[in-house]
Design a protein around this nucleic acid. Structure first.
Length: 653
DNA sequence: CATGCCTGTCATCGA
DNA sequence: ACTCGATGACAGGCA
């Protein structure tokens, strides 16, 4: 009865990389023509692929595949579809990344429309095409340099437009947020997204400290967690607040060449080390700091993934996040990255991120970001490596950083191979995620000021993000004075420690929260058990009463003789016999009671003592005495109450 | 002005 | 020996 109500808690392990891994394997299979079961013919060219992949991406293929189930299916595409347009789409189907240029984007768009490529048309072309081909679009307002909360917040205060934007999003924010948090959330959606991005790695906490994992598990947080990795968050944030005012100029500077020795490309080095903050850039276009209200529907809202847990209930929403990436080539990559996050309002949060993405993307051709798209820099789009990702983080395209995917990938690529990923997401969400940067600005600005005074040849913002080896290598390659060296080390140490302190505090809060959960759970369990005990006690009482009634009836109707009672006692002389509760009294009340009943009562009460009706406590007026059995002629030590002892004596007398 | 909260920093410890 | 992360303690800012 009760056991059926006690369920074992369920936990869910959700891999953040599984889908990517599967997709990559499928792509490899396609390239090796392994397990491919369909041939697509376009303009006399044939492409091998997997039906399931094509069908899942394209309505056209889905319709065609379902009609033909046999092996060796060959599908010829309509004349409108060209190989130039189809190849990137096929690539997209297997990589979630669409590589396109201004020259072929129309062709791709046309093919995507014909083939009904899901999630690509609106998510990509609806706003990319106007940006490429809208001649009315000016180049003003292209600086998308702000990212960190502090600056967003400050910028917002300085800008009426941002206030408007904030008003737009304010309704989306939970009313329970503290003003500070709410402001931060309202100010800059990428910042929120940034914190969401952090949620991918907080699982480290549990691995770092088993006790936290225990608490998280106890509260079922193992699957619903959304913790953060403030380190990357901050480094990301701080790194990006330095817009590159002139890439070409940066490239020409001497320190670039020295940075290339670190394994960075010239562009990376330029991006990384010479991006002096342009005051004007951060001020002149405050509207870019936040949302673009004009593009709220650019991305379709994708379905949320779900997790399950019996206790506590999981977050009911895990919105996806789309990431726009750029590659070090002349192609633009729009990829969809579904990542586990938690936010109060998935659709709205998502839309704000989408708007930000669209907003930022719209500015690319005019910003320094566009420069890296120039064909002269890289002719080939290559896989992102950690160094690339790292310098991508420094680009002035906030959505890159703020969405956190770059961070996550950098982390993954730094710790493992690029394809071998941060293994899982197990995150605990707490509101602390979103307010990590409120007062950071002052410290950062002070540090920056100091760095300026020290005349460092690079930005101190980046040194925290560097790995140990990179940092040491960078320090070696730089001709730093003793003071500069100390300062750099000091900054790095303090930044690291600052981040560690945040993590530590967050863990502590999580731990407290989990303990509160545990307490609440245990209280509920205790109340439940108490109620159950009371119920069982009542049941027992009722049962005893029923037996009592039965016994009364039996004795009254049967009118047992003493010998019969002896026999009855013999066969019912069990400790657990419910009659035992009444024998001490019944023996005195009924006519059949008498000295003969003594063995019966004694017998029934031997093992468990004499019990009072309705109670489970043994009365203390019992004594162990030898009782003579007339039938057997033997004496037996039995526990007999004082009442039963005195009764025969009075009767005998 | 006192208080509590948040954050950065330092010192220390253990890995 | 050195680095790094975690964490307690302390101080300062802020509401």
């Amino acid at each position: 009865m009760t056991m059926s109500r006690c369920k074992t808690s369920e936990f869910t392990f959700q891999s953040s990389v599984h889908s990517t891994h599967v997709l990559r394997c499928l792509d490899e299979q396609r390239q090796k023509d392994h397990l491919c079961d369909v041939t697509v013919v376009v303009e006399n060219r044939s492409y091998r692929a997997h039906r399931s992949v094509l069908a899942s991406c394209s309505e056209f293929f889905s319709a065609r595949m379902t009609k033909h189930t046999g092996q060796g299916l060959i599908i010829s595409l309509p004349d409108e579809v060209t190989a130039e347009g189809f190849e990137p789409l096929l690539q997209f189907a297997y990589t979630a990344k669409l590589l396109f240029t201004k020259e072929n984007v129309l062709e791709i768009h046309n093919c995507a429309t014909v083939l009904g490529f899901k999630n690509l048309d609106k998510a990509c072309f609806d706003f990319i095409l106007p940006k490429f081909f809208d001649s009315n679009k000016g180049s003003s307002g292209v600086q998308k340099n702000q990212c960190c909360k502090t600056k967003c917040w400050k910028a917002k205060n300085d800008s009426g437009l941002n206030n408007d934007v904030a008003n737009v999003t304010r309704n989306d924010s939970p009313a329970t947020q503290s003003p500070k948090k709410q402001e931060a959330a309202n100010t800059c959606s990428p910042c929120q997204a940034e914190t969401d991005a952090d949620t991918e790695t907080e699982s480290d906490y549990s691995s770092l400290c088993p006790k936290y994992r225990k608490f998280q598990l106890a509260c079922g947080k193992a699957q619903s967690n959304t913790d953060t990795e403030p380190e990357d968050t901050e480094s990301t944030c701080s790194l990006n607040c330095r817009p590159c005012s002139s890439f070409e100029k940066c490239k020409s500077e001497d320190n670039v060449s020295s940075k290339t020795s670190l394994g960075l490309t010239e562009e990376e080095a330029a991006m990384y080390f010479c991006c002096p903050l342009t005051e004007q850039s951060s001020k002149e276009t405050p509207q870019n700091l936040c949302l673009d209200k004009t593009s709220p529907q650019m991305f379709p809202v994708a379905s949320s993934s779900s997790v399950k847990s019996s206790y506590p209930p999981p977050h009911p929403y895990l919105p996806t996040r789309e990431v726009v990436q750029i590659r070090a080539g002349n192609e633009l990559t729009v990829s969809e990255c579904k990542t586990e996050t938690v936010c109060p309002n998935p659709s709205k949060e998502r839309s704000s991120v989408e708007m930000e993405v669209a907003n930022q993307l719209s500015a690319w051709p005019d910003t320094c970001c566009s420069r890296i798209l120039e064909p002269s820099l890289h002719s080939q789009a290559v896989e992102m490596k950690s160094s690339e990702l790292r310098w991508l983080k420094q680009l002035e395209c906030p959505f890159l950083r703020d969405l956190g995917a770059v961070d996550a990938q950098v982390r993954c690529s730094e710790t493992t191979s690029p394809s071998e990923e941060c293994s899982y997401i197990s995150s605990v969400h707490s509101e602390e995620d979103s307010d990590s940067f409120d007062t950071e600005g002052d410290s950062e600005s002070y540090t920056s000021e100091q760095a300026r005074l020290m005349q460092l040849p690079f930005s101190v913002d980046g040194i925290v993000a560097l790995s140990r080896n990179d940092f040491q290598q960078m320090v070696k390659t730089q001709q730093l004075t003793r003071e500069q060296l100390d300062f750099v080390h000091d900054v790095r140490r303090r930044s690291k420690n600052r981040i560690a302190a945040r993590r530590c505090r967050k863990r502590k809060l999580d731990c407290i929260h989990n303990l509160e959960c545990e307490i609440e759970r245990l209280w509920n369990e205790k109340e439940k058990l108490t109620a159950e005990k009371q119920h069982l006690d009542q049941m027992r009482l009722k049962t005893r009463e029923n037996y009592s009634v039965l016994y009364d009836k039996l004795c009254a109707e049967a009118k047992l003789q003493p010998e019969q009672l002896q026999v009855f006692a013999k066969y019912t002389s069990l400790g657990e016999c419910p009659f035992s509760a009444h024998l001490s009294t019944k023996a005195q009340l009924y006519p059949c009671s008498g000295p003969e009943l003594q063995p019966l009562a004694s017998c029934l009460g031997t093992d468990t003592g004499i019990y009072e009706p309705g109670t489970s406590t043994r009365t203390d007026n019992t004594r162990n005495l030898p009782v003579y059995n007339p039938h057997t002629g033997n004496s037996k030590i039995m526990s007999i109450s004082a009442d039963q002892i005195s009764k025969p004596e009075t009767e005998n007398s």
